[in-house]
Amino acid sequence: MQSATEQIIQIRWHGRGGQGAITAAKVVAEAAFRSGYGGVVMAPTFGTERRGAPVTTSLKISHSKIYDLSPITTPDIVVVLDHMILHEVDVTAGLKPGGWIILNTPRPVEKHLFPGYRTAVADVTRLGVEAGLRKGIVNTGIIGALGRASGLIDIEALADNIAVEFAGRKPDANAMAARLVYDATLMFDNMGGSTDA
């Protein structure tokens, strides 16, 4: 029997309290589950959270039921909802070599090179506004970048689940934000690979 831990994809979300990282992780969890991943576990930081302060959320995805609920320490992917968090938190802590950093930033991908890791960037804040969202709503948009870079879940499944989760709260604009970001995501492999746009 193979150890369950090795089949689990671990995604750590970095956002600010109130920014919606938990909701975003929940949407991805739903989409993963509906796409055939039988095991999904999403856990916010245990304890207290403060609006505006950096917070993390853990998402584990697996083909079979997940029994280990301990917080993620060695993520495969980190999702960063706001590039200013990079000044406050070491988002690469424990990130597996070659792991993805999915980043919302207005700056070009070349400005965010993390040696030994792969980076995917998009100006999620701007694209959210283009999609019809209030400025600063980034949690749905960044799901598009995660979908693009990771290839884990189809963008249509992600967009559908966004629309369901945001029923009554601009479902179409939120889903559109993810689609726009999916198309605009730029990826850079700083393992010595090439960009893919």
Partner: peptide, 10 residues
């Protein structure tokens, strides 16, 4: 608490 109360799973 937290491990189950605040964690999401199917």
């Amino acid at each position: 608490g937290y491990y189950l109360s605040h964690t999401y799973m199917p």
